[in-house]
């Protein structure tokens, strides 16, 4: 039974989210103040966080940063402004995905399921450049030293590493990694590729692991 932490200051929406989540079989816990979010997060140890961006106390972006500094737990943002910088800021601070209000309950559940989905993993050991990827152990090592990736970043790296010959378009990655059925906002891919590079590349300015193919998308390098 997966636990979901809902961080939203709107009582009615929180309650409604609780109803919908419980109907899907999740356990929900709530927080209505940004400054308390981290404490409740530590306490409840959720499997996924639903995070509103506009929060009293501490801004959603800040909450996201604080949680991300500690944990790779999937974070899905709830935002009312899909076309503003808020989305980019949220993604850059570590959110894995976002839904724009007003969303359909099914849409939200689909996003949550996609993030909580556990692929049937085979015992597989991949190498990419000087990285060794342990699929079962969900770990990436360079020279025996572990690099800490969030599950999403791991999935992104894995998707690229499994077919190093293939150039992925951003839309393909959205389907493969984010499990979107309809192609959505490609900014998701851009932002997370940047975050992944920051962790795995020797020099993120001159990537050697996740290469950009101009006008097409990304591929595993070199």
């Amino acid at each position: 039974m997966a636990r979901v932490l809902v961080v939203d200051d709107d009582q009615a929406l929180s309650e409604m989210l609780g109803i919908v989540l419980r109907a899907e079989g999740y356990t929900a816990s709530f927080c209505d103040d940004g400054s308390k979010a981290y404490g409740i997060f530590k306490e409840t140890k959720p499997d996924l966080v639903l995070l509103d961006l506009m929060l009293p106390g501490l801004d959603g972006v800040e909450v996201c940063k604080v949680i991300r500094a500690e944990s790779g737990v999937p974070i899905v943002m709830l935002t009312a402004r899909g076309d503003t910088l808020d989305v980019i800021k949220g993604l850059e601070s570590g959110a894995d995905d976002y839904v724009i209000k007003p969303f359909k309950p099914k849409e939200l559940i689909a996003r949550i399921k996609a993030r909580l989905k556990k692929d049937d993993l085979k015992a597989e050991s991949l190498t990419l450049g000087d990285l060794s990827i342990d699929v079962i152990g969900h770990s990436v090592k360079r020279n025996g030293k572990e690099i800490s990736l969030t599950p999403l970043e791991f999935d992104l790296l894995l998707a690229l590493a499994r077919k190093p010959w293939q150039v992925y378009t951003r839309e393909q990655l959205l389907t493969e990694v984010w499990h979107y059925r309809n192609p959505a906002d490609t900014r998701l891919v851009n932002v997370h590729v940047q975050r992944l590079r920051a962790k795995v590349e020797h020099d993120p300015e001159n990537p050697e692991i996740v290469m950009t193919v101009r006008g097409v998308g990304y591929k595993a390098g070199p």
């Binding site: 929406l13 989210l17 109803i19 919908v20 109907a23 009312a80 309950p105």
Partner: peptide
Amino acid sequence: VSHELRTPLTTVRMAADV
């Protein structure tokens, strides 16, 4: 308006769906 309307609308929407 966007933010203020969208939050209650989300709630109503979810309630209506349920």
